[in-house]
């Protein structure tokens, strides 16, 4: 689904660039095949929404209803677009109100 309000974001950034509490949309996974497959199966796919719960190595993100800890290398291969901080992130988890 194309993002209409794309003006906020310009270039995809690494997941590690997010601050605590920020929401983002996954744009691309640049990992090797095995790691990319593993991330994808856990829900890190293009268009997936993530929330940064705790920054650092490893960081803690929420994807859907799951809480996942990710090491530094994996944070660097997940490229995201920061969501509009005013608009509430629309989750793919069926939590849409």
């Amino acid at each position: 689904m194309p993002c209409v309000r794309n003006y906020v974001t310009t270039k995809p950034i690494q997941l590690s660039a997010l601050s605590m509490g920020e929401n983002a949309t996954v744009v691309e996974i640049t990992a090797g095949e095995a790691a990319a497959k593993r991330l994808a199966d856990l829900g890190f796919v293009r268009g997936g929404h993530v929330e940064m719960l705790r920054t650092g190595r490893p960081c803690l993100v929420r994807i859907g209803t799951a809480c996942i800890g990710l090491g530094r290398e994996l944070q660097e291969v997940i490229l995201i677009n920061r969501n509009d901080t005013n608009g509430r992130a629309k989750r793919l988890s069926g939590e849409t109100t």
Partner: peptide, 21 residues
């Protein structure tokens, strides 16, 4: 190759879940 399966399945789940939860 590595993402298509997750995309297809999660897309189906996201279509179904609003009617379930």
């Amino acid at each position: 190759i590595v993402e298509v399966e997750a995309q297809v399945r999660y897309a189906w789940i996201d279509r179904v879940l609003p009617g379930v939860v």
